[in-house]
């Protein structure tokens, strides 16, 4: 094993893997907590929707688009002062989570908005006709009906985060991507590169598989 992969130090790989899991998992939690309400807001204030508000929709939509168009590597650096204010450091796993959240939230919010739009308008109308308030329509009908789509959105977001997290090395964030760049690319240790990439592939596959299973479980169509 050590002859085949002379440069691979497994404990380091282990630490890096755990860091990636922490970065993806930690930021995903906040992204869902922030992105879900934001997506609902985008949906409700959109054209011909329950709380149509063209001005509010325009502003929120614009901010979301701006955040989505900044390349993550730039966001990572630009956000350093903000990150320091929020988590007290711009380094390590903690320092990467705020920029990941800033990049992932607008992305996920759009996915939530799209899956809410796919809910049958007739179902919304029927719920309205039962005398449901907007709050009840959202919590009782819209979100349960859109749940499979929202879970699929979480899966896509998580996978995007895996690739974003690979850039964490720029601010000393660690993780598998960082390892691949520092050892595999900068020190020409191809074996480290291969191992990290294989691990990333496995990680992404696992996320996709879990996501697909959950979507299937919650789909009643």
């Amino acid at each position: 094993m050590s002859e085949l992969l002379p440069n691979v130090r497994w404990w380091e790989i282990g630490v890096a893997s755990w860091d990636t899991v922490l970065m993806v998992g930690g930021s995903l939690l906040f992204i869902v907590l922030l992105g879900l309400p934001l997506g609902v807001l985008l949906f409700l204030t959109g054209k011909r929707q329950l709380l149509e508000q063209p001005a509010l929709y325009g502003v929120v939509s614009f901010v979301v688009n701006v955040l989505r168009s900044v390349p993550f590597i730039i966001l990572l650096i630009v956000m350093i002062p903000v990150t320091v204010i929020i988590v007290g450091t711009s380094l390590d796993v903690a320092g990467v989570i705020p920029p990941l959240v800033a990049a992932g939230t607008p992305f996920f919010a759009r996915l939530v908005e799209t899956s809410l739009r796919e809910v049958d308008r007739g179902v919304i109308e029927a719920t309205q006709a039962m005398g449901a308030s907007t709050r009840q329509i959202v919590l009782g009908a819209l979100l349960p009906e859109a749940l499979p789509g929202i879970i699929a959105g979480i899966t896509v977001t998580a996978i995007t985060l895996v690739s974003y997290a690979a850039m964490a090395g720029v601010v000393g964030g660690g993780g598998l991507g960082d390892l691949a760049i520092r050892y595999g690319y900068q020190r020409f240790q191809t074996d480290v590169m291969i191992i990290t990439v294989v691990l990333l592939v496995v990680f992404v596959q696992l996320l996709q598989m879990i996501g697909d299973r959950l979507v299937l479980y919650f789909s009643r169509r």
Partner: peptide
């Protein structure tokens, strides 16, 4: 309704 409009998740 014509298309019943039941909640598919319930």
């Amino acid at each position: 309704f014509q298309h019943f409009n039941l909640l598919s998740s319930k």
